[in-house]
Protein backbone atom coordinates (compact mmCIF):
# COMPACT_ATOMS: atom_id res chain seq x y z
CA UNK A 1 0.00 0.00 0.00
CA UNK A 2 2.83 2.35 0.92
CA UNK A 3 4.25 1.88 -2.57
CA UNK A 4 1.26 3.69 -3.98
CA UNK A 5 2.09 6.86 -2.08
CA UNK A 6 4.17 9.18 -4.17
CA UNK A 7 5.36 10.72 -0.92
CA UNK A 8 8.06 8.03 -1.13
CA UNK A 9 9.59 9.86 -4.07
CA UNK A 10 11.04 12.49 -1.75
CA UNK A 11 13.19 9.84 -0.09
CA UNK A 12 14.18 7.87 -3.17
CA UNK A 13 17.54 8.95 -4.55
CA UNK A 14 16.47 7.68 -7.98
CA UNK A 15 13.63 10.17 -8.12
CA UNK A 16 13.98 13.66 -9.53
CA UNK A 17 12.35 15.16 -6.43
CA UNK A 18 14.56 13.36 -3.89
CA UNK A 19 14.79 15.75 -0.96
CA UNK A 20 18.54 16.18 -1.41
CA UNK A 21 18.15 17.31 -4.99
CA UNK A 22 15.29 19.64 -4.09
CA UNK A 23 17.31 21.13 -1.24
CA UNK A 24 20.24 21.78 -3.54
CA UNK A 25 17.96 23.38 -6.13
CA UNK A 26 16.48 25.60 -3.45
CA UNK A 27 19.95 26.44 -2.19
CA UNK A 28 21.17 27.50 -5.65
CA UNK A 29 18.03 29.57 -6.21
CA UNK A 30 18.32 31.17 -2.78
CA UNK A 31 21.94 32.22 -3.34
CA UNK A 32 21.73 33.42 -6.93
CA UNK A 33 18.11 33.99 -7.89
CA UNK A 34 16.42 35.54 -4.85
CA UNK A 35 14.02 37.55 -7.07
CA UNK A 36 13.06 34.60 -9.22
CA UNK A 37 12.66 32.49 -6.09
CA UNK A 38 10.12 34.99 -4.82
CA UNK A 39 8.22 34.58 -8.06
CA UNK A 40 8.43 30.79 -7.80
CA UNK A 41 6.81 30.93 -4.37
CA UNK A 42 4.27 33.57 -5.31
CA UNK A 43 0.58 32.73 -5.22
CA UNK A 44 0.48 33.52 -8.95
CA UNK A 45 2.77 30.54 -9.65
CA UNK A 46 2.17 28.25 -6.68
CA UNK A 47 -1.60 28.34 -6.87
CA UNK A 48 -1.97 28.70 -10.63
CA UNK A 49 -4.53 26.30 -12.09
CA UNK A 50 -1.70 24.63 -14.03
CA UNK A 51 0.31 24.10 -10.83
CA UNK A 52 -2.71 22.71 -9.02
CA UNK A 53 -3.11 20.17 -11.79
CA UNK A 54 0.59 19.26 -11.41
CA UNK A 55 0.05 18.49 -7.70
CA UNK A 56 -3.02 16.37 -8.36
CA UNK A 57 -1.45 14.73 -11.37
CA UNK A 58 1.63 13.82 -9.34
CA UNK A 59 -0.46 11.87 -6.84
CA UNK A 60 -2.81 10.20 -9.33
CA UNK A 61 -0.14 9.30 -11.89
CA UNK A 62 2.04 7.88 -9.11
CA UNK A 63 -0.71 5.43 -8.22
CA UNK A 64 -1.32 4.65 -11.90
CA UNK A 65 2.38 3.97 -12.46
CA UNK A 66 2.62 1.43 -9.67
CA UNK A 67 -0.77 -0.15 -10.26
CA UNK A 68 -0.90 -0.25 -14.05
CA UNK A 69 2.22 0.91 -15.86
CA UNK A 70 5.06 -0.85 -14.07
CA UNK A 71 3.38 -4.28 -14.17
CA UNK A 72 2.94 -3.79 -17.92
CA UNK A 73 6.59 -3.06 -18.52
CA UNK A 74 8.86 -5.97 -19.28
CA UNK A 75 11.71 -6.19 -16.76
CA UNK A 76 15.29 -5.17 -17.48
CA UNK A 77 16.47 -8.59 -16.27
CA UNK A 78 14.32 -10.37 -18.84
CA UNK A 79 15.63 -8.18 -21.67
CA UNK A 80 19.22 -8.60 -20.49
CA UNK A 81 18.91 -12.39 -20.27
CA UNK A 82 17.21 -12.58 -23.66
CA UNK A 83 19.92 -10.49 -25.34
CA UNK A 84 22.76 -12.40 -23.60
CA UNK A 85 21.33 -15.71 -24.82
CA UNK A 86 20.81 -14.38 -28.36
CA UNK A 87 24.37 -13.01 -28.48
CA UNK A 88 25.66 -16.43 -27.44
CA UNK A 89 23.44 -18.13 -29.98
CA UNK A 90 24.28 -15.96 -32.97
CA UNK A 91 27.87 -14.98 -32.29
CA UNK A 92 28.97 -17.91 -30.14
CA UNK A 93 30.23 -17.81 -26.60
CA UNK A 94 33.49 -15.97 -26.15
CA UNK A 95 35.87 -16.19 -23.26
CA UNK A 96 35.39 -13.01 -21.34
CA UNK A 97 37.78 -10.14 -21.91
CA UNK A 98 39.79 -9.34 -18.82
CA UNK A 99 39.96 -5.68 -17.92
CA UNK A 100 40.48 -4.02 -14.59
CA UNK A 101 37.44 -3.63 -12.39
CA UNK A 102 37.85 0.16 -12.37
CA UNK A 103 37.86 0.43 -16.17
CA UNK A 104 34.88 -1.90 -16.41
CA UNK A 105 32.74 0.04 -13.92
CA UNK A 106 33.74 3.42 -15.28
CA UNK A 107 33.13 2.51 -18.92
CA UNK A 108 29.79 0.83 -18.11
CA UNK A 109 28.68 3.91 -16.16
CA UNK A 110 29.65 6.26 -18.97
CA UNK A 111 28.28 4.16 -21.82
CA UNK A 112 25.00 3.53 -20.03
CA UNK A 113 24.64 7.21 -19.20
CA UNK A 114 25.49 8.41 -22.72
CA UNK A 115 23.37 5.87 -24.61
CA UNK A 116 20.50 6.39 -22.20
CA UNK A 117 20.72 10.14 -22.71
CA UNK A 118 20.84 9.74 -26.50
CA UNK A 119 17.80 7.49 -26.48
CA UNK A 120 15.93 10.00 -24.30
CA UNK A 121 16.82 12.71 -26.78
CA UNK A 122 15.41 10.79 -29.72
CA UNK A 123 12.30 9.57 -27.99
CA UNK A 124 11.66 13.12 -26.78
CA UNK A 125 12.21 14.45 -30.27
CA UNK A 126 9.86 11.85 -31.71
CA UNK A 127 7.26 12.84 -29.12
CA UNK A 128 7.40 16.28 -30.72
CA UNK A 129 7.68 15.37 -34.39
CA UNK A 130 5.25 12.45 -34.74
CA UNK A 131 1.74 13.96 -34.66
CA UNK A 132 0.13 11.07 -32.78
CA UNK A 133 2.87 11.12 -30.12
CA UNK A 134 2.71 14.89 -29.84
CA UNK A 135 -0.95 14.59 -28.87
CA UNK A 136 0.23 12.76 -25.73
CA UNK A 137 3.30 14.89 -25.08
CA UNK A 138 1.20 18.08 -25.27
CA UNK A 139 -0.08 17.19 -21.81
CA UNK A 140 3.39 17.98 -20.44
CA UNK A 141 3.76 21.13 -22.52
CA UNK A 142 0.35 22.46 -21.53
CA UNK A 143 1.84 23.57 -18.19
CA UNK A 144 1.74 27.37 -18.06
CA UNK A 145 3.77 27.72 -14.88
CA UNK A 146 6.57 25.37 -13.91
CA UNK A 147 7.50 23.65 -10.67
CA UNK A 148 9.51 20.47 -9.97
CA UNK A 149 6.31 18.38 -10.01
CA UNK A 150 5.65 19.42 -13.64
CA UNK A 151 8.26 16.76 -14.42
CA UNK A 152 5.62 14.17 -13.52
CA UNK A 153 2.88 15.76 -15.64
CA UNK A 154 3.27 13.17 -18.35
CA UNK A 155 0.53 11.11 -19.98
CA UNK A 156 0.59 7.42 -18.88
CA UNK A 157 1.25 6.33 -22.46
CA UNK A 158 4.35 8.49 -22.50
CA UNK A 159 5.37 6.90 -19.19
CA UNK A 160 5.13 3.51 -20.87
CA UNK A 161 7.23 4.64 -23.85
CA UNK A 162 9.94 6.11 -21.64
CA UNK A 163 9.82 3.04 -19.41
CA UNK A 164 10.29 0.75 -22.43
CA UNK A 165 13.13 2.90 -23.63
CA UNK A 166 14.86 2.52 -20.27
CA UNK A 167 14.32 -1.23 -20.19
CA UNK A 168 15.61 -1.74 -23.74
CA UNK A 169 18.64 0.51 -23.44
CA UNK A 170 19.71 -0.78 -20.03
CA UNK A 171 19.00 -4.39 -21.00
CA UNK A 172 20.94 -4.27 -24.26
CA UNK A 173 23.94 -2.37 -22.88
CA UNK A 174 24.15 -4.64 -19.83
CA UNK A 175 23.84 -7.76 -21.98
CA UNK A 176 26.64 -6.61 -24.28
CA UNK A 177 28.84 -5.96 -21.27
CA UNK A 178 28.05 -9.38 -19.77
CA UNK A 179 28.74 -11.01 -23.13
CA UNK A 180 32.20 -9.47 -23.36
CA UNK A 181 33.19 -9.10 -19.71
CA UNK A 182 31.14 -11.60 -17.69
CA UNK A 183 29.87 -11.02 -14.17
CA UNK A 184 30.69 -7.99 -12.08
CA UNK A 185 28.98 -5.33 -14.20
CA UNK A 186 27.57 -2.40 -12.34
CA UNK A 187 27.44 1.32 -12.59
CA UNK A 188 29.41 3.53 -10.27
CA UNK A 189 26.82 4.70 -7.80
CA UNK A 190 26.48 7.16 -5.01
CA UNK A 191 23.80 6.61 -2.38
CA UNK A 192 22.30 4.09 -4.81
CA UNK A 193 21.98 6.34 -7.85
CA UNK A 194 24.12 6.37 -10.96
CA UNK A 195 26.89 8.80 -10.04
CA UNK A 196 26.39 10.91 -13.16
CA UNK A 197 22.63 11.14 -12.69
CA UNK A 198 23.32 12.06 -9.09
CA UNK A 199 25.74 14.82 -10.02
CA UNK A 200 23.42 16.32 -12.62
CA UNK A 201 20.49 16.09 -10.25
CA UNK A 202 22.50 17.92 -7.62
CA UNK A 203 23.37 20.80 -9.90
CA UNK A 204 19.87 21.86 -10.57
CA UNK A 205 17.80 19.25 -12.39
CA UNK A 206 14.82 20.40 -10.35
CA UNK A 207 15.30 23.90 -11.68
CA UNK A 208 14.52 22.66 -15.19
CA UNK A 209 10.86 22.88 -14.31
CA UNK A 210 10.90 26.17 -12.44
CA UNK A 211 11.05 29.92 -12.95
CA UNK A 212 14.68 30.04 -11.84
CA UNK A 213 16.67 30.84 -15.02
CA UNK A 214 19.94 29.11 -14.19
CA UNK A 215 22.25 29.19 -17.18
CA UNK A 216 25.57 27.36 -17.42
CA UNK A 217 27.07 29.94 -19.76
CA UNK A 218 27.58 29.76 -23.52
CA UNK A 219 30.54 27.37 -23.47
CA UNK A 220 29.06 24.82 -21.07
CA UNK A 221 25.61 24.94 -22.63
CA UNK A 222 27.07 23.48 -25.81
CA UNK A 223 27.84 20.37 -23.74
CA UNK A 224 25.25 20.24 -20.98
CA UNK A 225 21.61 21.24 -20.97
CA UNK A 226 21.06 23.93 -18.37
CA UNK A 227 17.78 24.50 -16.53
CA UNK A 228 17.32 27.68 -18.57
CA UNK A 229 17.67 25.76 -21.83
CA UNK A 230 14.94 23.37 -20.72
CA UNK A 231 12.78 26.30 -19.65
CA UNK A 232 13.16 27.64 -23.20
CA UNK A 233 11.95 24.26 -24.43
CA UNK A 234 8.78 24.89 -22.41
CA UNK A 235 8.19 28.31 -23.93
CA UNK A 236 5.69 28.89 -26.68
CA UNK A 237 8.45 29.96 -29.08
CA UNK A 238 11.16 27.35 -28.54
CA UNK A 239 8.98 24.29 -27.92
CA UNK A 240 10.70 22.22 -30.58
CA UNK A 241 14.28 22.99 -29.47
CA UNK A 242 16.52 21.58 -26.70
CA UNK A 243 15.23 18.02 -26.44
CA UNK A 244 18.21 16.82 -24.40
CA UNK A 245 18.06 15.68 -20.80
CA UNK A 246 21.60 16.01 -19.47
CA UNK A 247 23.90 16.34 -22.48
CA UNK A 248 23.57 19.11 -25.05
CA UNK A 249 25.75 17.35 -27.62
CA UNK A 250 22.79 15.52 -29.15
CA UNK A 251 20.92 18.78 -29.73
CA UNK A 252 24.09 20.32 -31.13
CA UNK A 253 24.84 17.39 -33.46
CA UNK A 254 21.26 17.07 -34.67
CA UNK A 255 20.64 20.80 -35.05
CA UNK A 256 18.11 21.49 -32.31
CA UNK A 257 20.24 23.34 -29.76
CA UNK A 258 19.31 26.79 -28.50
CA UNK A 259 21.62 28.34 -25.95
CA UNK A 260 20.06 29.71 -22.81
CA UNK A 261 22.35 32.61 -22.12
CA UNK A 262 21.45 34.63 -25.22
CA UNK A 263 17.74 34.25 -24.62
CA UNK A 264 17.76 34.68 -20.87
CA UNK A 265 16.69 38.31 -20.98
CA UNK A 266 13.48 37.43 -22.78
CA UNK A 267 10.38 36.75 -20.77
CA UNK A 268 9.77 33.07 -20.46
CA UNK A 269 6.22 32.48 -21.61
CA UNK A 270 5.42 28.85 -20.90
CA UNK A 271 2.72 26.74 -22.52
CA UNK A 272 1.72 25.14 -25.77
CA UNK A 273 3.33 26.59 -28.91
CA UNK A 274 1.78 29.67 -30.49
CA UNK A 275 0.47 27.72 -33.49
CA UNK A 276 -1.55 25.51 -31.18
CA UNK A 277 -2.79 28.20 -28.90
CA UNK A 278 -5.98 26.99 -27.32
CA UNK A 279 -7.67 27.48 -24.02
CA UNK A 280 -6.23 24.94 -21.63
CA UNK A 281 -8.53 24.08 -18.73
CA UNK A 282 -5.90 22.15 -16.75
CA UNK A 283 -8.29 19.38 -15.78
CA UNK A 284 -7.16 15.92 -14.78
CA UNK A 285 -9.70 14.21 -17.00
CA UNK A 286 -8.73 16.43 -19.91
CA UNK A 287 -5.07 15.56 -19.46
CA UNK A 288 -5.82 11.85 -19.55
CA UNK A 289 -8.49 11.82 -22.27
CA UNK A 290 -7.64 14.71 -24.61
CA UNK A 291 -5.01 12.70 -26.52
CA UNK A 292 -7.70 10.12 -27.35
CA UNK A 293 -10.75 12.34 -27.76
CA UNK A 294 -10.25 15.74 -29.39
CA UNK A 295 -13.58 17.04 -28.07
CA UNK A 296 -12.37 16.91 -24.48
CA UNK A 297 -10.44 20.05 -23.53
CA UNK A 298 -6.87 19.67 -22.32
Amino acid sequence: MFDYLTFDYFFDVNQRIYYGYVMMAFFIAFVFFRKSLKKQFSREVLWHKSARLDYLYFIVSGVLKVAIILPLLIGVNEVTLWVVLRLNEYFGYISRIRVSKEILLLSYTLVLFAVSDLSRYWLHRLMHSVPILWRFHRVHHSAEVLNPLTFYRVHPLENILFGLRYVLVTGVITAIYIYFFGAGIRAVEFLGANILVFVFSMIGSNLRHSHIPLSYGVKLEKWFISPLQHQLHHTKIYTHRNFGSYLAIWDRWFGTLTLGKAKSSKILDFGLPIKERERVTHSLLGAFLNPFIKGIKL
Partner: peptide, 12 residues
Protein backbone atom coordinates in the same frame (compact mmCIF):
# COMPACT_ATOMS: atom_id res chain seq x y z
CA UNK B 1 19.52 -5.61 -9.27
CA UNK B 2 18.37 -3.86 -12.42
CA UNK B 3 14.99 -2.82 -11.10
CA UNK B 4 12.63 -0.71 -13.18
CA UNK B 5 13.61 2.85 -12.56
CA UNK B 6 10.65 5.19 -12.36
CA UNK B 7 12.75 8.29 -13.00
CA UNK B 8 13.47 6.83 -16.42
CA UNK B 9 9.79 6.22 -17.04
CA UNK B 10 9.05 9.92 -16.93
CA UNK B 11 9.43 12.42 -19.68
CA UNK B 12 11.23 15.71 -19.48
Amino acid sequence: ELTPDIIEADGD
